[in-house]
Write a protein that binds this DNA or RNA. Sequence first.
DNA 1: CCAGGTAGTCAACAACGGTTGATATAGATC
DNA 2: GATCTATATCAACCGTTGTTGACTACCTGG
Lengths: 199, 199
Amino acid sequence: MARKSAPQPTASTRDRILDAAVLRFARHSYEETKLRDIASDVGVDVAYVHRCFGSKQHLFAEALTATTQFDRILASAGDDLAGALARKIVTRNAAANANEVEPLDIVIRSLCSAEATDVMRKFMLRDVIGPISRKLDDSATRRAALITAFLAGVSTFRNVLRVEELRQAKGGELEKMIAKAIKWMIGEDTTAETGLSAT
Amino acid sequence: MARKSAPQPTASTRDRILDAAVLRFARHSYEETKLRDIASDVGVDVAYVHRCFGSKQHLFAEALTATTQFDRILASAGDDLAGALARKIVTRNAAANANEVEPLDIVIRSLCSAEATDVMRKFMLRDVIGPISRKLDDSATRRAALITAFLAGVSTFRNVLRVEELRQAKGGELEKMIAKAIKWMIGEDTTAETGLSAT
DNA sequence: CCAGGTAGTCAACAACGGTTGATATAGATC
DNA sequence: GATCTATATCAACCGTTGTTGACTACCTGG
């Protein structure tokens, strides 16, 4: 998942800037991420960062698309889509400070930045909700969107808000819950009934 | 849900500032919300806004607590907790531009602002996850947290990201899905199995 | 009438952060 | 060697925004 971390003999400066940007945007919100920081990560001048990508927004957009390949996860998921997604969400504390960037990291960091919103909505539909919905049988885009929202919500509570209750993975209990929730959403056919109280 | 919108003959300016702040924070992110805007909403000077609340962060904190009374919703929910929550999430387009502020509005707008995070985590635990978990039978704090994360995720996708697939409420289908998902999470006992594929 | 606190204004600071234009350096091409 | 382009730097601009301190207006109690 780490993007081209071993710089080729000739890793163009532009690429190195992009790498640094990905990392920054994955750990801080859009506003918190300053071009000057990215620049000094790479060891170049701010002006060059700007010039290379045209604007902060453009850089953000490129960083966003560069991150994920969500479909790769889905491809390797086999028929246990729910399990794969759940694992992807929970497995992470291990490589906490590594230079790894998980699919939704950038999204959840900037969910509320108006300046980043437009870029992200398109991205989410094309690169996340799309693939998931394709994985589901029929044209279940809404279910895919719901699942994605669930994933984003949980990720945010875990990694941004850092709500303790969603961080301890004692005995994989949490992961199991998430997996089952997703599985349930996948299987939702406006027929099944499982909960406690009747509507 | 609108906070004391009919200003008493003597609605102290401080209160009016707080009201304006609530509204701003519920519609824009922490960074986007400028003290100067709030000030001009009320018709006072920025300096006074600052002086009244000590700092932007303090103002945010007060706005946050002033908003919700989540437990009120839960109290009126009867035994259909899932239904009540789902309705709360989806019912909203109607009074879109009204001066109404829904429970999670402020939270989902600033989910990723580092400066707002600490304030919010405490708030979420005390005023949202807490009440929900109390409503559940046993000490199911984790399930409550999961449900809350789900609610936040869906709300964000609806109102901040504005993902179309989660906005159309044709025939209440979406609301039903959400209700069932929550109901399922409530009923989760690491036993039930409902989805398509086996783990 | 005066002291004193409350409610509020005004101007300015200080720091930040994206953006810009003019300039330097170096390698390739002719 | 002269020129041209890609790569990069430097300094400065310009708007924004939270914050501060000094100052004004007003009402109240003595």
